[in-house]
């Protein structure tokens, strides 16, 4: 089981990145996720849902995404994760965390999230949902 998570802003800029056990393609993860933005940008206008499962894949790795109402994209690149439902719930909680960060007066939208607390909570979520 491995996972790469990226929160991507409206200008294709990464707000937050987390990588767990992605050693074989570590340097390549951002490219894969970046290329999947094309697909999710097409998909997001077709349905009302925020969560898009398995929108793209590369070399046995799958990509799922979540688009916030503010057009921030949460993308995960993963291999052998448990279930789609777990990913959906993970995205839901991640969105809560992101909204809380957004409410901070010290944070402006589209800015990189450098909060250690945020990082710890995201890692806790990945442990909770994916046992990573």
């Amino acid at each position: 089981m491995s996972l790469y998570l990226a929160l991507i802003g409206t200008r294709d800029n990464p707000l937050y990145e987390m990588e767990i056990k992605m050693d074989p393609i570590r340097d390549f993860c951002p490219f894969i996720v970046h290329s999947a933005l094309d697909i999710i940008e097409d998909l997001q206008w077709k349905t009302n849902q925020l969560y898009f499962k398995n929108i793209d894949n590369y070399d046995n790795y799958s990509i799922s995404g979540y688009v916030t109402p503010g057009n921030i994209k949460f993308m995960i690149l993963y291999q052998n994760l448990r279930s789609d439902e777990a990913i959906r719930q993970f995205f839901g909680e991640l969105n809560d965390l992101y909204v809380k960060t957004l409410l901070s007066p010290f944070y402006t939208i589209n800015e990189a999230i450098r909060s250690k607390a945020f990082d710890q909570k995201v890692r806790m979520l990945s442990r909770k949902y994916f046992n990573l």
């Binding site: 200008r11 294709d12 800029n13 990464p14 340097d27 951002p30 490219f31 970046h34």
Partner: peptide, 16 residues
């Protein structure tokens, strides 16, 4: 496409 000359957004990507 990688918006390299306009802004430094995704350093790792752009550097590569």
């Amino acid at each position: 496409v990688y918006n390299i000359e306009q802004s430094s957004s995704w350093l790792l990507l752009q550097k590569s």
